[in-house]
Amino acid sequence: MTVLQYSGDGQYEGLEEIVAIARSVGWGAADILRSFYRGHANDSNLDIQEKKDGPVTAADVAANHYILEKLHAVFGTENFGYLSEETYKSLSEQSRESLVHTPWVWIIDPLDGTRDFIDKTGEYAVHIALVYQGRPVVAVVAWPEAQKLYYATLGGGTFVETQDGVTTPVQVSQREAMPKAVNEATIADLSVVVSRTHRDERFNQLLSQLSFKAKHYVGSVGCKIVTIIEQRADVYISLSGKSAPKDWDMAAPELILTEAGGQFTHFDGTPLMYNQGDVNQWGGLMASNGTCHQELCTKASQFLAKIDE
């Protein structure tokens, strides 16, 4: 296979071959999850374990094993690291330290939206991302129940693939008809996608201050970002509290959004960095179709500064 190389000018060689492999693995993992979802959900065979960071099921474990087995077989462990939700806690301190110093790292969430998987909303996803020195260059987000897979390479755009192999480029809505001047009225034209749960009072206050036109309720982060790419929503906000989203929640969704023309940053405008030692993405994160992105970040920061005084 082609060896991945960074040319030093923002260009990477070998990404198309890499993403083709990741797409195949994503579809395979999606099939595993669908088999559990249709055959074992709400069954004792699902082996639901309630843990501090949320539930884990036999489906999480099976999909994780499949993804790692397939990636290891192709890429090995000499030049690539692996950061997965299901195996990270079992790594030794030495292994975690070594991972931080590995330039190429696969970041994996085999089942994002486990609670939605258990509750049968259908809003769960597979996340697979390859990062280079902390930034994503390849991403796959599979939505099993929609039977769609979204993939992106850095600089190569975002595509949606159906199970019959048909691929279509996708772009976020630019809302070009909206006024150029950004004010409360333009932000009020936007809709936000949020979780049904995991919303504390601080986050609810922030939403009320931003006065969005509508709220859409969706489970997995990957599914939320897809709703923005497919122009069913405009904004997604993450605000950490006692806990925070993890690298594997954000890495793949970020790239499929930004390569589709959207933006995904911290409230202060800085990019998200991955595989930095702490897998938590603390603070406020803003994902949008790009309309009013900076203004939304500014308003969110100003409001939080007031309530956190």
Rank of each mutant, 00 (worst) to 15 (best):
V105M: 00
V105Q: 01
V105F: 02
W106K: 05
W106S: 01
I107S: 08
I108N: 01
I108W: 01
I108Y: 02
I108H: 03
I108L: 08
D109V: 05
D109L: 04
P110K: 04
L111A: 07
G113A: 04
G113M: 03
T114D: 04
T114N: 07
R115E: 10
R115P: 01
R115G: 01
D116F: 03
I118H: 05
D119G: 02
D119H: 14
K120L: 08
T121Y: 07
T121K: 08
T121M: 10
G122R: 07
G122Q: 10
G122S: 05
E123N: 14
E123G: 03
E123F: 10
Y124N: 00
Y124G: 00
Y124W: 11
A125Q: 00
A125T: 14
V126E: 00
H127G: 04
H127A: 06
H127Q: 11
I128S: 02
I128T: 01
L130T: 05
L130W: 04
L130Q: 06
L130Y: 08
V131S: 13
V131L: 00
Y132T: 00
Y132S: 04
Y132P: 01
Y132K: 02
Y132F: 13
Q133R: 13
G134Q: 07
G134T: 03
G134I: 07
G134P: 06
R135T: 14
P136E: 06
V137E: 00
V137M: 05
V137S: 04
V138M: 03
A139R: 11
A139C: 12
A139D: 08
V140F: 09
V140P: 03
A142F: 06
A142N: 15
A142T: 12
W143N: 07
W143V: 09
P144I: 05
E145W: 04
E145Q: 13
E145I: 02
E145P: 08
K148T: 05
K148F: 02
K148G: 07
L149T: 06
L149R: 12
Y150F: 15
Y151S: 10
Y151T: 00
A152N: 07
T153Y: 06
T153A: 08
L154Q: 11
L154S: 13
L154V: 12
G155D: 10
G156T: 07
G156K: 09
G156A: 09
G157P: 12
T158F: 06
F159E: 10
F159D: 06
F159W: 15
V160H: 09
V160E: 11
V160T: 12
V160C: 14
E161A: 04
E161I: 01
Q163L: 10
Q163P: 11
Q163Y: 13
D164I: 04
D164G: 11
G165A: 05
G165K: 11
V166T: 14
V166A: 15
V166G: 09
T167K: 14
V170F: 03
Q171C: 13
Q171T: 15
Q171W: 13
Q171Y: 14
V172P: 03
V172R: 03
V172H: 06
V172L: 03
S173L: 02
S173C: 02
R175W: 12
R175A: 07
R175D: 08
R175I: 02
E176H: 12
E176T: 12
A177M: 07
A177C: 02
M178A: 14
P179Y: 02
P179W: 05
P179A: 14
P179K: 10
K180P: 00
A181F: 13
A181Q: 13
V182L: 15
E184F: 05
E184L: 07
E184A: 13
E184K: 11
E184I: 10
E184Q: 15
A185M: 08
